[in-house]
């Protein structure tokens, strides 16, 4: 087996035989990602209505469904209406602390079987049970850490109370966010990514960050666009204005 040292030695040996094709530089990164991110946030404090409008347009172009509500307490009614139209009942949601609001009662009030993901790790038996619940769920409720106007993309970071699969296994995914998540461009999202990773201990720096741009789709059979291959066939964005 090749060791790391042998492998790198070979790379260096071959590199030494050429100066490359032309002088080239990598992308210039923000010198201080935290300050750069703060600057983006400050710009968006004023420009968020434009960013939101752009997001809505792009998101709808992807066949996403956009909703706006005044407060988190109105979220369950939106979800409940869609669920009834789709004959769906089983709902899983990020934890109350991850969502920033406890909507469990609200969902149950809409006649939905709502299960919130726990904040803390659970034992193996409970994990198996949760997985069965997740696999059978029809509706998944998450937050969104970024909503990118330019592309209609929702960015979700996994972590405490925010499992990777809540936005993946159910057929209908609802992402709830407010103006703090809005950015206009992918480039600004790049600044946020740099900032999240500036401190390795930052919970926003991992395990998995998903950029979700519309529903799960394929065109693998005769190039016919089909939605909901493995992930959700519908994605709903709920903007909370307060």
């Amino acid at each position: 087996m090749t060791t790391r040292a042998e492998f790198m030695e070979r790379v260096r040996r071959e590199m030494a035989r050429t100066r490359g094709l032309f002088p080239a530089r990598v992308a210039e990164r923000p010198a201080d990602p935290m300050t750069a991110a703060e600057l983006v946030r400050r710009q968006l404090a004023e420009r968020w209505p434009q960013a939101l409008e752009r997001f809505r347009q792009e998101f709808e172009r992807l066949s996403g469904v956009f909703h706006a509500v005044a407060s988190p307490s109105e979220v369950p009614a939106v979800v409940g209406r869609i669920a009834r139209e789709r004959s769906a009942r089983r709902l899983i949601t990020w934890s109350a602390s991850a969502l920033g609001a406890d909507l469990g009662e609200g969902f149950r009030g809409e006649g939905l079987d709502a299960v919130a993901m726990p904040d803390d790790p659970v034992d193996e038996a409970a994990a198996r049970e949760l997985r069965a619940i997740n696999a059978a769920a029809e509706i998944g409720i998450t937050g969104a850490d970024l909503a990118i106007g330019e592309t209609g993309t929702l960015v979700l970071v996994s972590g405490r109370g925010r499992p990777r699969s809540t936005s993946l296994l159910p057929e209908y995914h609802f992402a709830v966010f407010d103006r703090r998540a809005l950015v206009e461009t992918l480039e600004q999202a790049g600044v946020m990514l740099e900032a999240w990773h500036a401190d390795p201990a930052d919970p926003m720096s991992g395990g998995v960050i998903n950029f979700i741009t519309g529903p799960s789709r394929t065109a693998d059979i005769e190039l016919t666009l089909t939605r909901g291959v493995h992930g959700p066939r519908e994605v709903h964005a709920i903007f909370v204005s307060r």
Binding site: M117, P118, D120, P121, V122, A127, L130, S158, G159, R160, P163, R164, L193, P203, S205, G206, G207, V208, I209, N210, F211, I212, T213, G214, P215, S216, R217, G231
Partner: peptide
């Protein structure tokens, strides 16, 4: 539709 950034295995805080 999906750009997935994977950093390391599951975190201690993840289910």
């Amino acid at each position: 539709s999906y750009t997935t950034l994977v950093r390391g295995p599951r975190r201690p805080t993840e289910l």
